[in-house]
Simulated scan of single mutants.
Amino acid sequence: MTQASRWTVIGQLGEIPRQGARVVATAVGDIAVFRALDDSVFAVEDSCPHKGGKLSQGIVHGHAVTCPLHSWVIDLQSGEAAAPDVGCARRFAVRVEDGRVLLSVPGAAS
Rank of each mutant, 00 (worst) to 15 (best):
A4E: 14
S5V: 15
S5P: 03
W7R: 06
I10A: 06
I10S: 01
I10M: 06
G11L: 07
G11E: 02
E15R: 05
I16D: 02
Q19R: 15
Q19E: 15
G20A: 10
G20N: 08
A21P: 06
V24D: 01
A27F: 08
V28H: 01
V28Y: 03
V28L: 14
V33Y: 09
V33R: 01
V33Q: 01
R35I: 09
D38C: 11
D39G: 07
D39E: 15
D46V: 08
S47T: 14
S47N: 09
C48M: 09
C48A: 11
C48P: 12
H50T: 03
G53E: 11
L55D: 00
L55I: 10
S56V: 09
S56Q: 00
Q57Y: 09
H61I: 13
G62H: 08
G62M: 06
H63T: 11
A64L: 03
C67L: 09
P68Y: 00
L69P: 08
S71T: 10
W72K: 02
I74W: 06
D75S: 07
L76A: 10
Q77E: 14
Q77G: 09
G79N: 02
E80Q: 15
A81S: 10
A83I: 12
A83H: 05
C88H: 12
A89K: 00
A89N: 01
R90Y: 00
F92N: 05
V94T: 01
R95A: 12
V96Q: 04
E97T: 13
D98S: 14
R100E: 14
R100S: 13
R100C: 13
V101Q: 04
V105R: 09
P106Q: 11
G107K: 02
G107W: 12
A108N: 11
